[in-house]
C-alpha cells in the first residue's frame, strides 16, 4: 500500500514523485550494502533532527569521538550525519578523509545516500504542508557488503564508477552504493528532470519553464554554498 498519497499534500503531487517517495521510504528501513535497516533509520533520525550549530558552538573533532555503537550509531557516525545534513557546504577534504577512514568508504557513502534521499522528501512535505512521514519499522537482515565492480579513484572523497563512465559526475557520486544511487537518481528524475527533459533546454509541457526551474536550482545551490 502506498505511503505517500497526493491528497495529503496541499496541492496535487505528480504520481512519479509519489512513487519515488514510496521507494525511498521502503529503502530506509531495509538493510543496505553497509548498514542494517536499524542503522539506516538511525541515520535518518539524526538527519531529520539535526539543526545547524550556533555561531561559536564547538564542533567535536571526529578523532575525539568513539566509533562504537551507542546504542545503534557510533558518536562518529552521528557527527558525520549531523554535518552532512546541516553543513555539507563547508566539508573540507581533510574532514572528509578522516570521516572515510573512520567509517570506511562504503559506510560513509551509504550514510550520505540515506540523508540525500530523506531530505528532499521531508522538505517537500513541509513546503506542501504535509506532516512529516513517520519512519517505518526496521527490516531484519545484514548488509550485503558488496563492493561494485568498476570503481576507482576519480577525485572524489570515495571511489566511484570509472570503467566506461559517461555522464555528469553528480550521477555517479554514490556509485559505491549502486542501489541507493539508483533510488537517488530516480528521485531526481521525478522531482527535477531526467531523460529527455534533462537534455532539452526548452520545456513547453511543464508548468514552469526551464529557466524558472534553473533559477530556483541555482539559488538553492548558492544558499547552500555548493560549488558543483
Amino acid at each position: 500500500m502506498p505511503v505517500f498519497d497526493s491528497s495529503t499534500f496541499s496541492h496535487r503531487v505528480p504520481a512519479p514523485i509519489l512513487s519515488a517517495f514510496d521507494t525511498v521510504w521502503t529503502g530506509l528501513s531495509c538493510p543496505g550494502a553497509w548498514w542494517t535497516g536499524e542503522e539506516r533509520l538511525a541515520i535518518a533520525e539524526v538527519a531529520r533532527g539535526a539543526r545547524p550549530r550556533l555561531l561559536g558552538e564547538p564542533v567535536p573533532p571526529l578523532g575525539d569521538l568513539d566509533d562504537q555503537p551507542d546504542p545503534v550509531l557510533s558518536p562518529v557516525a552521528t557527527e558525520v550525519a549531523h554535518r552532512v545534513a546541516t553543513d555539507a557546504g563547508r566539508i573540507t577534504p581533510d574532514w572528509a578523509q578522516q570521516a572515510v577512514e573512520l567509517l570506511g568508504p562504503g559506510r560513509y557513502a551509504e550514510l550520505v545516500a540515506v540523508i540525500v534521499v530523506l531530505m528532499p522528501v521531508d522538505l517537500l512535505c513541509v513546503l506542501l504542508e504535509r506532516p512529516l512521514q513517520a519512519f517505518p519499522k526496521a527490516e531484519p537482515g545484514e548488509p550485503s557488503r558488496m563492493i561494485p565492480a568498476g570503481l576507482g579513484e576519480g577525485g572524489a572523497f570515495v571511489p566511484w564508477k570509472v570503467d566506461g563512465w559517461v555522464g555528469p559526475n553528480v550521477a555517479r557520486a554514490l556509485s559505491y552504493v549502486p542501489a541507493d544511487n539508483k533510488t537517488r537518481m530516480d528521485l531526481v528524475a521525478s522531482m527535477y528532470a531526467g531523460g529527455e527533459d534533462f537534455v532539452s533546454l526548452v520545456w513547453e509541457h511543464r508548468a514552469l519553464a526551464r529557466p524558472q526551474v534553473e533559477l530556483l536550482a541555482a539559488r538553492t545551490s548558492a544558499l547552500n554554498e555548493c560549488f558543483y
Binding site: 496535487r12 514523485i17 531530505m119 522528501v121 557520486a173 527535477y192 511543464r206 524558472q212
Partner: peptide, 21 residues
C-alpha cells in the same frame, strides 16, 4: 509544486556533491 520539488531535490543534490567531494 514544481518549484517546491526543485528546491527540495536540490537540497539533496548539493549534499551529494559536497559530501562526496
Amino acid at each position: 509544486v514544481e518549484a517546491a520539488a526543485t528546491i527540495a531535490i536540490f537540497n539533496g543534490l548539493v549534499r551529494s556533491a559536497d559530501a562526496i567531494g
